[in-house]
Amino acid sequence: MTQVAEAPDIHQTIKETVGSPFTHKPKLSTRNVDVFYDDKQAIFDVSLDIGNHEVIALIGPSGCGKSTYLRCLNRMNDTIPSCSVTGEFRLDEEDIYAKEMDPVLLRARIGMVFQKPNPFPKSIYDNVAYGPKLHGLAGNRAELDEIVVSSLQKAGLYEEVKDRLNASGTGLSGGQQQRLCIARTIAVSPEVILMDEPASALDPIATATIEELIDELRQNYTIVIVTHSMQQAARVSQRTAYFHLGKLVEVGDTNQVFTNPQHQLTENYITGRFG
């Protein structure tokens, strides 16, 4: 996802984002975002708002910069030394990249679920309890138990694991592991959850479970999901943003983007001509 091929003819066709990238009272707002890996530019002048309690899907071919953009939102790119990010990022009017913004606090407010399930090699209970313990969210053991149980319930995993909370998290199936990771993220009570292709390593049944879960989570959280699967984007999201070669080509209501794309590139992609 770090390689962006130079293709001037296409760059000229993407003059500016079509559709409706801005919303009223956004949860997250980004303006004029440029991201570089050393000298290579990965994202070109992306401006996008993410509304409260909506699921927005970022789609596009491999290497289009959607994961890079996602990782900018909770400053996970800070850990990559060669990566430099410019532009304006705001979470509820607070500057994400401000000096006084602590990435630790930011990541407590913007959680993240990764492509490959990555539970800690600890018990299921400890996996979920790690975040609350870290931030001191539970005053005592009973409160912690409650957080763990309710997080597992919200992630739709509790019924399956309630008898073996002390078993290792890595012993679960792939789909269960991913739901455990979601439960772990929810346990910190974030405002936004970023999901980087959360179902790409899962079979169709586990994927369906995760998609249902995303739909339920929308009640309480704002969700940004990167996905390779257009069907998935169509199923779970209210808005869809199409990235192409580091540029944001088109944003709009999911229905409209999939049924009546405004931009030629978007149409090519969703009709399966490439990607």
Partner: peptide, 26 residues
């Protein structure tokens, strides 16, 4: 695996916490 570091960092663990609570024990 880097995914363990990512997991801890994304939950809001600081660098030192990530290293000493997850990476070093592993």
């Amino acid at each position: 695996p880097p995914s363990i570091r990512d997991a801890a960092l994304a939950l809001g663990a600081s660098k030192v916490q990530t290293v000493f609570q997850h990476v070093v024990p592993l």
